[in-house]
Design a protein around this nucleic acid. Sequence first.
DNA 1: CGCTTTTGACCTGCGC
DNA 2: GCGCAGGTCAAAAGCG
Length: 354
Amino acid sequence: MDPWISSQPSLSLDLHVGLPSLSRHQAPVAVAMAKPKVLVEENFLQPLKKEPEVAALETELQRMSEENRRLAETLTAMAAKYEALRSQYTEMVAGATTGPSSTSEGGSVSPSRKRKTSESLDTAAAHPHHLHGGQQPVGGLAAAPADQMECTSGEPCKRIREECKPKVSKLYVHADPSDLSLVVKDGYQWRKYGQKVTKDNPCPRAYFRCSFAPACPVKKKVQRSADDNTILVATYEGEHNHAQPAPAPVSQAHDGSGASKNAAAAAKPPSPPRYAAAAPAAPHHPQPQLHRQHQQQDAVAMSVGEPVAAAASELIRRNLAEQMAMTLTRDPSFKAALVTALSGRILELSPTKD
DNA sequence: CGCTTTTGACCTGCGC
DNA sequence: GCGCAGGTCAAAAGCG
């Protein structure tokens, strides 16, 4: 086995689809990603031309390259469609926010909720979901401003409420089954405000609110998977209206939630949680490992222009990468995962217009 | 003392 | 209208 392969911490694929919004930092990587097949076709097979398998390999390689090109075209088309949809959505949101806005002063809060009637406006702002399940449009977040419109009539309000629910994403985290705490370390500070045993799952569900910013509308529900109790399912609702808190020292590397015995127990495993899956619809959710891998891969891409002595092993690496890509692209489950990862990546790369 | 978790009660939405 | 289930509140207790 090539020692280079065994020395790699992961095989993270920092994919780029050639969006026009690539930053200067990312541009060299995109170029490097666009070039490999040419490099392999022109250089790698030169010394092997006399081998009998070369012809077969070459045709296979051409087929791969063709498939690669088609996939790239598909991705480009997807990115274009995504941009079009995104601009449409932005226009819709802008149109909704410029319209007449009804706030909590409108008296739309149910009068039957006696606790609510004694609450101040500050509290209402801190719990915007009580206002017809909407999301507070704070800090440039315009995820669901439309649900605050037309709430005087019952039916349209209900429909809008359903369509404009706060952005929901799920995170699956592998957890020690012996660890009974429902703590998912994601870099933010959470305050637990409730726990409930639900009907479909014997494991209790914990409810968290972001405690870093008082008015942050994000909520989190954490529950063990009914099928596999080693998996914690964290459901995030809304988006943070503040930056991620600075990483805590190692001795306090827990959920950021206070100094309770549960939090202390949650801090026990020093290794970061294994993110089994993450919905791409939550760009504000931290992925520190991912970012580190991107930086590493960028560094690798920058060091491509090495002396000739490294060129041979470089070509072997590229060939291996091509073979891996070919094998992986034949796997339908990988393709599905790739689509998910790419859609998330596209979200990260696309320019933010809000 | 301030902050957090715990936990029973309360509220709301939904299906029948 | 009623009952159920999910979500939230808030007082009490624990912890550093």
